[in-house]
Amino acid sequence: MRVVVDSIIGCGHCFFCQSEQYALCDNTNPKPELTDKLYGYPTAGIYGYSHAFGGFAGSHATYVRVPFADTNAFEVPEGLPDERVVFASDALPTGYMGADLCNIQRGDVVAVWGCGGVGQMAILSAYLLGAERVIAIDRFPERLAMARDRAGAEILDYEQVDVREALREMTGGRGPDACIDCVGMEAHGTGIDYAYDRVKQAVRLETDRPTVLRQAILACRKGGTVSIMGVYGGFVDKFPMGAAMNKGLTLKMGPQHGQRYIPRLLEHIRKGELDPSYLITHRARLADGQEAYDTFKEKRDGCMRVVFTPEA
């Protein structure tokens, strides 16, 4: 039997798991002291992530120990190749949750910042959940091309256009009904606020760069939803609270509660309504891990996702 294991660990029994908020699980972080202090309460354990989230070993290995397997592992339907289901562990449920939090209605236009793995999945998911149009924003030509050709989005290169003005025109002056931030704290930008964040980070007065978040809040139509799936870790500056409050925006965010979504995502894949396998641009053996990570990190050779095959 083949299974997909969610990247965030739930115990399945606490208040949060019982209400399908698995990433907020009370019981799966064996090192809760840091997040208890920094965030007020500790959150769930995550594989191959910061020690603040438990320090569980990653899954790029021949064997992986899975706590609470009855909650976290999902059987893969017969006949589906590994390539089509591997991203159901993290990128796909993250992108899907980003779109799900937007409460998409008929005729809605959704803007997605970031065309990496999560962004691509958010685009596909927004269409699955009934979006009329999806507009994707990035600066890497190969990622924008992928968003256009494989996910069916309209694309904007933020180095070529003023994103807010472009979105305003493309949406008949209304603005996008929902904005999904699939970038997070390591955002890049071209404006003065980006320079400001870099300076404040350099002198350790700020940890995260909310370039995309600011833009999404300002671009979003009045009464719209901003869904934050990109990762933030600490503190941000110059958060446009006035715009968010006075425009009556709904801000929704959080780490992915994959266990809530994986069964229906596997069903979409089985029916052929969803195929995330196009994210795979490179393949490698575990022995070539370092080189593969370098390629991924530096986005060399149009790299989107590297898939390791442990047996090879």
Partner: peptide, 21 residues
Amino acid sequence: LRRLKMLLEAGEIVTTEGQPS
């Protein structure tokens, strides 16, 4: 208290002890 809660709710105490690094 944390360990008591884990035992009562999840039936085990979650740990990463002994994992390879």
